[in-house]
Design a protein around this nucleic acid. Structure first.
Lengths: 122, 122
DNA sequence: AAGCGTTATGTTAATTCAAGCATATTGAAA
DNA sequence: TTTCAATATGCTTGAATTAACATAACGCTT
């Protein structure tokens, strides 16, 4: 720090915010949706996934159906009834899409942090 | 193109969407706001800028006041009355912030496009 | 003093998006 | 045939954000 450094970090008080999503045919889904898919993959039920995310079954189911309709692809296969009551699994397409989105997101996270620092930390 | 290329571009039908913004003290402003600042810089009045963006003077003025309050800095200097009726100019701080946001945005645009292509065009 | 164009601000209407409530259905097990 | 856990959907509220309406004040010009 030398004389004339008053302006140093004048802009460092700001933070960058952002949201990314995928879209196709007007159907838009972002972080929350793919997080939901992860939970379905892990829990084996929509009910369990919804619970884990603190949302209603109704909301979770609605998101999935909307995405399937707009994107024109099956994202889950469901069983209803039976000894466990039922269950839900991701289709292979949904699994791959989830993986691609995750990698996409990770790289974007890194790059935005870098670009922001380059422009606002001095 | 060779045999077995059926899967080619299976994911290219998707597009990436995103939004970026700056925040400080809970005050959030993105593309629309900085676009408004540009128009003020160019038009010399809030009225003209609002008109150019197809929004009401009331809405434009509200955005600016909210940002100034949350961010704790003056973004515009205004004259009221007089031969032209009045006018508005950006403060030096607002001009610099606008420039930094623009550069930030340009670089993010480029990088996201690149990362998306890398993950979804094959 | 009257007019014009602009800034300044409170108040209310409208629209959109998400949350919550209610209910029906399914199929194995007891 | 009753129970149970889960899927499947319609419908109603509510919250939050945005748009629209209505004035007031200012200062130069005519």
């Amino acid at each position: 720090m030398v004389a004339g450094d008053d302006k140093q970090k004048k802009w460092a008080c700001f933070n960058a915010g952002y949201k990314i999503w995928l879209e196709k045919n007007g159907g838009v889904q972002g972080d929350g949706f793919f997080q939901l898919l992860e939970h379905i993959q892990q829990a084996g039920t929509i009910t369990g996934a919804a619970e884990a995310m603190g949302m209603s079954y109704r909301a979770a189911w609605g998101k999935i159906k909307t995405a399937e309709k707009k994107w024109g692809m099956a994202l889950v296969t469901t069983r209803v009834g039976g000894e466990t009551g039922g269950g839900t699994r991701l289709t292979p397409d949904a699994s791959e899409l989830l993986g691609r989105f995750r990698r996409f997101r990770e790289e974007v996270d890194r790059e935005i942090a870098r670009i922001f620092t380059a422009n606002f930390s001095l």
